[in-house]
Simulated assay, not measured.
Amino acid sequence: MIHRHETFNGTYPFAAHFTAAPGFDMHYVDEGEGPVVLCLHGEPTWGYLFRHLTAQLCTNHRVIVPDHMGFGKSETPADRTYWLQDHIDNLEKLVLDLDLQDITLVMHDFGGPMGMGLAARHPDRIARIVSINAPAAFGQPTLGATLEANTAESPWFTWVIRAAQEGRLEGVLNESHYNILSTLKLNGFERNELITATWLKAYAAPFATPADCRGVLGWAAGFAAGMHQFENPDTIAREKISRLPALCIWGSADQTLHGKYFIPLFRSLFPDGQVYELPQAGHYSPEDAPDAIAWLLSRFLGLNPVGKPTQHIIPVI
């Protein structure tokens, strides 16, 4: 767990907030005023991934960026499991504790099924959906085939399954502080000039000891063992969610979550949604293309204000 006041040489200057509602100290950033934008990170990142978006959006929005259990500045309890459904439970308790309404979900990586899980449980609290290299999916019948096909082409998921079968997964991921760069590069980002001492420290810091690695290990081990449970909303909730303004931004160089599998999944759920592909960006597109993503997201928020009818525009693909 990172010290609450750590800013990584001023690159993460946001005040730390904590809630004990999920049963552990869960950290979140809470910057600005206005409509709520809730940013959800994935594996093996934390709120640092959204530092550029936070700074650019907080002038007109209330930007909330939680660190999930076992990541970032949040606690890593020893007596908890770290499956998808556990993270959805924690997120739900944060949202209810803060009584967040009219939420714009901005989701990356496993933040996608986590945010969609929240939407399934509380569709009346969600106003807009944004997927950034994130599976925007429920437990629909096509999900299993999509995940299987993607896994066959993903070096990360292929390694996770093989390492789990051979008993090597825990040994490797319990040393994430040491091998964070190889983990990030295996998942994929394109801008090697980002790899500074400060950048590496920021992404390695949550995993200083094996005891700190329960989050990063739990997500991978849960995938290998089939422990993650995607939410299935009822028909009314699914219909309500599918009518929300929705935006998909995909770094086309993603080698972990391939757009050819997950963009159709997004379109099947949000037939009127907008899709933008960024050819120079990889899996960690908020790192590769922060300005482009901020512009697309700001434009989307402006065209689809909370409480007003959606303005449909022709997507640029």
Rank of each mutant, 00 (worst) to 15 (best):
L38R: 07
E33N: 09
I103F: 14
L100E: 11
E75V: 09
T151K: 01
T158K: 03
E43W: 10
R191S: 04
A205N: 07
P113K: 12
G307Y: 11
D97E: 15
R243D: 07
M227I: 03
L40S: 05
L98K: 13
T142V: 00
P305K: 11
A221M: 08
G32I: 03
P44K: 05
H177L: 00
L301A: 12
L296N: 07
A163L: 00
P22N: 03
I293N: 11
K185M: 05
T45N: 05
L173K: 11
R191V: 08
S268E: 15
Y28A: 02
G23M: 01
P315G: 11
A120P: 12
G302T: 03
G307F: 13
G226K: 08
S74N: 06
D25E: 09
V65I: 13
F223P: 10
H283F: 07
P305E: 10
G188I: 08
A204S: 14
L265D: 14
T183H: 12
N9C: 00
P210N: 05
G188H: 07
F8W: 07
L53S: 13
D124E: 15
I293C: 09
T209K: 09
D67L: 10
H108E: 14
A205I: 07
A253Q: 15
L244G: 02
L247I: 09
P135M: 06
L147K: 01
Y28E: 04
H61M: 09
W199Y: 14
T209H: 09
G34R: 02
L96M: 14
Y203N: 05
F110T: 15
T11D: 02
P245E: 11
W219E: 03
D109S: 14
Y12I: 06
Q255G: 12
